[in-house]
Write a protein that binds this DNA or RNA. Sequence first.
DNA 1: GATGAATGAGTTTTCATTCAT
DNA 2: AATGAATGAAAACTCATTCAT
Lengths: 205, 205, 205, 205
Amino acid sequence: MPDIRNPQQIRSIEKKNKIIKAGFELFCEKGYYATTTTQICRRAGISTGALYSYFRDKKEIFIAAFKDFLDGDYYNTLLESLNNFEEPFNIDMFLDKCVNVLTELYLTSYKALIELGNMQIEDQHIMKSFGRFEDKFMRAVVEALTAHDIKTYNLAEKYYLVFILLETLAQEKTFTHDTIDYDKLKNETFSIIKSYLLIPNRDCT
Amino acid sequence: MPDIRNPQQIRSIEKKNKIIKAGFELFCEKGYYATTTTQICRRAGISTGALYSYFRDKKEIFIAAFKDFLDGDYYNTLLESLNNFEEPFNIDMFLDKCVNVLTELYLTSYKALIELGNMQIEDQHIMKSFGRFEDKFMRAVVEALTAHDIKTYNLAEKYYLVFILLETLAQEKTFTHDTIDYDKLKNETFSIIKSYLLIPNRDCT
Amino acid sequence: MPDIRNPQQIRSIEKKNKIIKAGFELFCEKGYYATTTTQICRRAGISTGALYSYFRDKKEIFIAAFKDFLDGDYYNTLLESLNNFEEPFNIDMFLDKCVNVLTELYLTSYKALIELGNMQIEDQHIMKSFGRFEDKFMRAVVEALTAHDIKTYNLAEKYYLVFILLETLAQEKTFTHDTIDYDKLKNETFSIIKSYLLIPNRDCT
Amino acid sequence: MPDIRNPQQIRSIEKKNKIIKAGFELFCEKGYYATTTTQICRRAGISTGALYSYFRDKKEIFIAAFKDFLDGDYYNTLLESLNNFEEPFNIDMFLDKCVNVLTELYLTSYKALIELGNMQIEDQHIMKSFGRFEDKFMRAVVEALTAHDIKTYNLAEKYYLVFILLETLAQEKTFTHDTIDYDKLKNETFSIIKSYLLIPNRDCT
DNA sequence: GATGAATGAGTTTTCATTCAT
DNA sequence: AATGAATGAAAACTCATTCAT
């Protein structure tokens, strides 16, 4: 039984990365089931046999591809961009940036992210492999917000809701509903978030 | 092209329903791709041939199963229950009910609902077949809220956000995150929604 | 085991004929393999079960359909028309008529006739069931020609060749070759046949 | 869409040829519809998957088998043999050779040739793929005859008729009619062809 | 190590034939 | 007798995985 290589050598690592990249692209384009190993090999420029010396099976590629995505430059740079703002901190601009980041994410990777969600439900193994992609995004948002406006209690839960609201907005921007007007939704969302996060400032006396 | 029976007789309708039921259950349990027609036949207690005399192909079963689900007693009774409250209207109890309804939905059908979302993205034909399942839910919520508390502008967008927040809560109840405490999330969510929907009542003077 | 009915009653005979008619039409339109029993039943206006009380299997319908065609009014009237000419006998007009008859035959029944040929090769049983459809046509031609011009020896073989030549012409009329000019082919064919059949008249002295 | 291998390597070409050979044999033996892909695989000694990596579907095998047959050694050698005669040119011997060539053709491939004809009618794609098998045969006959005896006008049509007559003879040799005596038919056929082609020599003065 | 041809179990689908009503 | 729903064996085809070279 051939062992799965854990590549140390540069050439090997490069090859493994090519597989991961190709796999991720295809999963994003067509989803998990509609992507065949042959397609992955072709796009990665490797042979079928080679694939199976780096990964035990197709599912492992999927997992690796997501690990890689969540830890990779693309996603991290995107997240870091959230924290690059010029003082003074303007919450509207910040929220706008959040929506843009999420929107870019959905435009490139929606199908794959959904598939990931699916797989997590179907497959305990994948579920354990990593939290939902939003975890990292949330942490970035929290970090940025914490630096400027503080809600001391229920932090995780508060920001999770903020994240959900932003995500909703980004989804709407990406996949429009007939009955929803994006600009109005944006106004409403921002107004909720601001009133919510900044309640101290709106205290009635 | 083989004929698809459009059953008039009770026996036939029952059989078609058995297929739909079996299909829906399996799609919920394992997702669309992991469900085979053979499994559907076995669970429905029919032969392969019979299945194909009621449905042109597997995808049609999926569509029918969802049509049936969204129009069926189970979902509708669930939705109607939202409007059965004793006066005076208590918004906390109402929101609780909403979360419970969504939670029950996710517990029984999450995988299938996700798969539906997927398919809608992949497949324009399915997209047209019915709006997203939330549309109906939202309408029910709007109806109930409208009767008691009025937000005159951006109604659709406002209630959409309320829906999203409730859905988030229900999802959390169903599929727990490590970092989130459900009760706290519930408090926060309800407080947002209430402060949001009831702002007029809370006007500072 | 249900016996195959040999229908005596008028109603039964009518039904059997409807099956035969429907089957023949469909075999002509789409060929044997592309025709399903269900289609035959639908066009005949009967139930699947009924079909199998008149015919043991699909092949029997095919055989019956051809028996019926070869013995039926359509074909026989067509053949008789060969003999309805006004005196004096004009061989060109007669040959023209022959070609027209064959052409009509091909236009309506080519696919079925070919399928018959096929089946005769594949299936000894069908082979025995009837000679090739041309046998009857040939006899009609022979009859007409014999009445006016006599070649005493090798009659069968001579007329068979004449038949083949006429058939060729009709086929060309029905399904054109790129390289062949129909009018020229007709001239050549007629000239062969005439010089062949009428050689006595052309004796050199 | 799975890739179809276009084999360059000898081993691959050999395998593709094994499939074509097995397919052609089976099509000749039982016809297109009665031949299953499984049978082709078994006879070719390959797996189902392999078959589908060389051909997109069953029909493609059929087409390839015929392309191969018409362009292949067997048929070409047969045709070339028509032109290998010792001078002086003897038309009887030449015609005999023609009949023998056609007879051998029918004995080995009749069912497949018929099926090809069928398919050409049913399927425009196949129709375009190659002219009827007779085209090539005719060209060979024309070539041989042209070298020795000349009919200057309506050449194509004349030789087409000659071809038809020879084919008839070969068919009779292969699949006997009850009412026809082969030797007599041969005499008659040859006499027609000769008198037809050589009419100049028989001019009455 | 690498290759990519080969495998074959597994899938969807069809349709002649049967049989309960 | 008639119906037409049901059957299920058999067909075409796919694709993750293996293994000879």
